[in-house]
Nucleic acid binder design. Structure first.
Lengths: 235, 235
DNA sequence: CTTTATAATTGATATAATTCACTTTTTGAA
DNA sequence: TTCAAAAAGTGAATTATATCAATTATAAAG
């Protein structure tokens, strides 16, 4: 049985179709006029919150984390973005500074698009601007859901939920039966769930004992998603 | 001394200028073509999450809360909206259902604008559409900040922060020296902060003992904002 | 392959927050 | 003004989570 039926994935993730797919060639060319693809290494920083927003980024292939860091150095991961997604437009639209920081989680191919080209395309293409409105509204659902979960669910429930979300997100199309291996540090997992690393470790151990998952080094293999869904406890 | 300097209000609130102010008359008329003002009583529900999104709402005068309710009946307040703000567009932009629920907190004058007029204005007016993009991006800051605070600050710090935010929000322009009286139930305050009502009551008592505020019935008068700012502990 | 820095894990303890059961106060309707 | 319902307030017990201080395992670089 597919988890999709009982698990409303798009309430927890943004729509995964790329905002650029099937964009009219003219609009696409305008946007990409001065674009510049680069290979980023794991742990590199794409940009930091508060820095001047000089343009947006398009993830050709890879995984990144959007996060906020507070005074004490606590890091809260806002969203895990990946192949096909656009990054950094919030800051440009609302002012001229990036609103969060973005770190690269695995070696990634990422295209930089200068601010001017982004703005020009936005003005010129109502398709692009409508899609962006739609994307932003969808982000609203995801963020407000995260807020509710964070406020009212236990760490255990939140961790179970995030594991399911990440699994769905990183699942390759077509590979239905295959077990999905998550390659994410305990630290990042903790910063995503909003708790301390130690708690994540402890709960993962419990999950291991309950035969829900296996770990090998930092890699997590989920064996029983349904149990996780049950623990996360949502309708 | 104004609190504005040390308190980055727009990180916690949306920009308070109305999205409709100074909109070209032509666009405004298009938007308001079939609008309909109604008087809503305290505690009335404007719409519920998941309901068909038939249009948007403009708050002419009043206060409302945007919230999400989970299976267990827990209510998380996402945002307190008031005079001059637009409500309900996320659902229309991202699909056809409202993405949260909205309840009226005090008797309010609210205009309903049918979906078609909203969409037509959006297509026709690039000013309107640009402002909406800006508003949505700004919401992103507010929501991601809320997320970070919820995940990493104590209930005490969160409550202090919210009291400052509400005070700034509800402050009448010009009445600088006047003490601001907040009229909000402990329950709503708890649902905003993301905790139980009892905790809010206990911490308010502590604040009272520390001469930070006074309460008379459900009304809260803040006497020392700076102390609250200090407790909330942000740069 | 070995080394070394980094990350994961474990246990013990302290603290924060929730929950439940109850009393008191306030509010709004009659 | 009275009265009932709703909201606020209090105390005690329980549970969840954070924090600190180590040890062990892992991965990345030379």
């Amino acid at each position: 049985m597919s988890i999709k039926g009982i698990f409303p994935i798009d309430k927890w993730d943004f729509k995964s179709e790329s905002i650029l797919i099937d964009l009219p060639a003219e609009d696409f060319d305008l946007l990409m006029a001065h674009s510049n693809e680069k290979l980023y290494k794991k742990n590199e920083i794409l940009f930091r919150e508060g820095a001047y927003a000089s343009g947006i980024f398009y993830i050709v292939k890879g995984k990144v984390k959007k996060y906020k860091a507070d005074e004490e150095g606590n890091e809260q991961i806002i969203y895990l973005a990946h192949t096909g997604q656009l990054i950094g437009y919030h800051g440009i639209l609302s002012g001229d500074q990036y609103l969060d920081s973005v770190g690269v989680m695995e070696d990634s191919r990422i295209v930089f698009i200068p601010k001017d080209d982004f703005m020009r395309t936005l003005e010129h293409s109502s398709i692009f601007s409508n899609r962006l409105l739609k994307t932003l509204s969808h982000e609203y659902t995801v963020l407000t859901n995260s807020l509710t979960v964070l406020a009212h669910k236990t760490v255990r429930e939140r961790l179970a939920l995030q594991l399911v979300v990440i699994r769905e997100k990183y699942k390759e199309k077509g590979a239905e039966g295959m077990p999905i291996v998550l390659n994410i540090s305990r630290e990042d997992l903790a910063n995503l769930v909003g708790t301390a690393r130690e708690n994540v470790v402890r709960i993962l151990t419990e999950f291991k004992e309950d035969n829900i998952l296996e770990t090998k080094g930092r890699k997590i293999t989920i064996k029983d998603v349904n149990k996780l869904v049950q623990i996360a406890n949502f309708k």
